[in-house]
Simulated scan of single mutants.
Amino acid sequence: MVAVEKRTLGRTGRPVSVIGLGTWQLGADWGSVDEDDALAVLDAAMDSGVTFVDTADVYGDGRSERLIGRLLKGLGADLAEQVFVATKLGRRAPQVPEEFTLDNFRAWTDRSRTNLGVETLDLVQLHCPPTPVFGSDGVYDALDTLVDEKRVAAYGVSVETCEEALTAIARPGVASVQIILNPFRLKPLQRVLPAARSAGVGIIARVPLASGLLSGKYRPDSKFGSDDHRTYNRGGDAFDVGETFSGVDYDTGVAAAREFTELAPSGMTPAQTALRWILQQPGVTSVIPGARSSAQVLANASAAWMPALPPSILTAVQDLYDRRVRAQVHHRW
């Protein structure tokens, strides 16, 4: 591994690389990725200094976790200890608050421990559960029990809305909040990031490229596979529509991304510019872009070394958001 900037992930007390790796795409919902290519992506992440890997028990029904488990086993004990793996629970059952019980949490985390080949999970996160779950004393008591039983070392939440994030941040045991944050999703900057900083809670920025829009590669006629959520979830038919293109209408997103592309400084791609923008937001611990190839991993990781964006670009991002995107997303999430 090469050395990259690390920040402490909130109440876990653990350092993680500022650029991590999201692994939803290695399990499902982004088109097929064969096993060799998936393992090559994970190897490239390690080679580029990534020490933070995010997954979930439902990504490919555990495929993503199992691939990461193979990676950890192959690294050996010393190197594996440097890798922080965050997984998630809660979407293996009907999405009703009654399913969020200690017995289910034990079963789900035991399955993840087996998939990953570890005794104790570094971090388990509630996986965008129904909103009432975030206010349930019983849910946090159950998560505390998992820590006491050493099934997990720490717990956090992954949220859809800023209000859910603020509810979770107020809980003393919550180590981190994972939230959609990118130049097309600025609302977390107003209250969530300041609250997290004040409470010592880590912020993991997900969907950082707005499902690829911010790479500037897509056009109005771009096509995605039938097994890609960018095809089947545009209307929110499978899960929260905010997960796909950050909730922005595709044509609007393509037009806004074209403008964003023009903001990229010389020597930086639009995707690297978006990642660098996120890293400059006070309170962000790590950003977790996905990747389907080793080249994408290396390009994303290199954003950690790139120079800070000047104030003029930060102002231009705010202007672009206000003109193109705010009306579609700000009131919803």
Rank of each mutant, 00 (worst) to 15 (best):
A77Q: 14
I68P: 06
G69D: 11
D47A: 13
D43N: 13
V53W: 06
E81M: 09
R63K: 07
T55E: 05
G76H: 12
G60L: 06
D47V: 03
K73R: 14
I68A: 04
R63S: 04
L42N: 15
L42I: 12
E35C: 02
L89H: 13
V83Q: 14
D34K: 15
G74Y: 02
L39W: 11
T51M: 06
V58R: 04
T55Y: 05
G69C: 00
Y59H: 06
L72A: 03
T55C: 04
M46H: 13
I68F: 05
V83M: 11
L72Q: 10
S64N: 03
T55N: 10
G60I: 07
F52E: 03
R91G: 09
V96W: 05
F84S: 07
L39S: 06
G90K: 08
A56G: 07
F84K: 11
V53L: 15
V85R: 10
L75I: 08
R66L: 00
A93V: 15
E65W: 01
D34H: 14
G69F: 01
D54H: 03
A44T: 13
K88M: 08
D37F: 00
Y59S: 05
A86H: 05
L42H: 15
Y59G: 08
S64H: 01
V58T: 13
R91L: 03
A40K: 12
P94Y: 03
Q95K: 11
D47I: 01
K88Y: 07
L79E: 15
D78Y: 00
A80C: 06
G62N: 00
E65D: 06
D57P: 00
F84A: 07
V41Y: 12
A44P: 13
V58F: 05
L71Q: 11
G74Q: 09
G60T: 04
F52N: 10
V83L: 14
P94D: 14
V53F: 11
L89G: 12
G74L: 02
D47W: 03
T51W: 02
G76L: 06
L39I: 10
D43Y: 02
E35N: 11
D47N: 07
F52W: 10
L67W: 07
D54V: 00
E81N: 14
A44S: 15
R66G: 02
R92M: 11
V83H: 13
G62M: 01
D78M: 02
D37N: 09
A77K: 08
L39K: 11
E65H: 02
G60D: 10
L75G: 07
V41E: 15
A80Y: 10
Q82Y: 01
V53A: 08
D78G: 05
L67E: 10
G69R: 09
D57K: 00
V58Y: 04
R66Y: 01
A38Y: 08
A45L: 10
L42G: 15
D47K: 09
G74E: 11
R91P: 04
D78R: 12
A93T: 14
L71V: 06
L75E: 13
Q95E: 14
E81W: 03
D37E: 15
R91Y: 04
D43G: 12
L42K: 12
A80S: 15
L67M: 09
A93F: 10
L42A: 14
A80Q: 12
S48F: 03
T51V: 06
K88W: 03
